[in-house]
Amino acid sequence: MGSKPKPAARRRIRAPRDFYGGLALMALAAFAWWGSLNLSGMQGVQFGAGTAPRLFAGLLFLTGGVIAVMGLIRDGEPIGRYGVRGPLLVAASILLFATAIRPLGLPLTSFLTILLTSAASDEVRWLESILWAAVLSAACTLLFVYALGLALPLWPSF
C-alpha cells in the first residue's frame, strides 16, 4: 500500500482520472485534426472530405477540455495502479500472432500465442497451459478452417 492517499481536497488535481482522461482525449482530437489538414473543407454547401473529421475532432477537443477542467475543480477518484504484466504480455502475444500467422500457419501460431498469453496471469501453471494450448489451438483450427471455411494459412511456409 505504501503512504496513505492524500485527501482529495489537498491534491492539486482533484480528479486525476478525469483530468488526465480529458487531456488525452484533447491530444487525440488534436492529432486527428492535424491528420486531416490535407483534406479539403466545405466547398460551398458541399461537405469536403475533411469537414466531418474536423467537426468531430473539434467537438471532441472541446468536450475533453471541459472534462479536464472539471477534473481540476471537482473531487474524484485517484487513478490507481495500472496493471503491467497483464497488458504487456497480452499485447506481446497479439503482436506475436500478427507476425507469425503468415509464416507459421494457424495451429502453430495459436499454440505459441496461447502459451505467451497464459503467462499474463499470476496463477499460470505451465504444464496445464501447454496441454490447454494444444487443445485450444486444435479446436480453433477445426472450428475456423474446417467448420467455418475461413481462408487462414494452415502450415508453416518455407
Partner: peptide
C-alpha cells in the same frame, strides 16, 4: 487465453 486467441483469429 481462449478469448485472446479468438480475438486474434
Amino acid at each position: 487465453p481462449a478469448i485472446v486467441i479468438f480475438c486474434c483469429i
